[in-house]
């Protein structure tokens, strides 16, 4: 898969995690700017989902199996929006912690995606 995109998603996710972690440290809930950040990260993950599907359609195959690859792609796309949704109704620092945790999960999924696709 596109390694540059995988690295970009992982880096953006870690940045989002740090940002929301800082908000939690300052005892603040997620704000509009954080949600814009989540949208950017989600868009990157969506781009990755599209690229992944296009590559599968072109006949390229991941090393560790197609089902697992698609499952991880879908999980990577859903991770941050799901955490953002949870933080919408949790207007305390713990909402920020949730988004930070969601972004970390996304970064881990990117590492796994990289392994599953192989080189």
């Amino acid at each position: 898969m596109l390694d540059a995109l995988t690295i970009a998603v992982a880096a953006a996710a870690l940045a989002l995690a740090a940002w929301c972690g800082y908000a939690a440290y300052r005892d603040q809930p997620t704000k509009d700017w954080h949600f814009i950040g989540m949208a950017v990260v989600s868009l990157l993950a969506l781009a990755q989902l599209v690229v992944g599907i296009v590559q599968l359609a072109r006949g390229e195959r991941p090393e560790q199996g197609m089902t697992i690859f698609i499952a991880y792609l879908a999980g990577a796309f859903l991770a941050v929006p799901a955490a953002g949704f949870l933080s919408l109704s949790e207007r305390t620092r713990w909402g920020s912690v949730t988004v930070a945790a969601g972004a970390v999960v996304l970064a881990v999924l990117e590492v796994r995606l990289y392994d599953i696709w192989g080189s």
Binding site: A71, G75, A79, A82, A83, L86, S87, E90, T92, W94, G95, V97, T98, A101, G102, V105
Partner: peptide, 20 residues
């Protein structure tokens, strides 16, 4: 709610991970 919200997130993730 509160810290429990973070637990809901992690338990949700692990439900999906283990189930799938």
């Amino acid at each position: 709610t509160g810290p429990g919200r973070v637990l809901v997130w992690f338990y949700g993730v692990f439900t999906v991970a283990a189930a799938s």
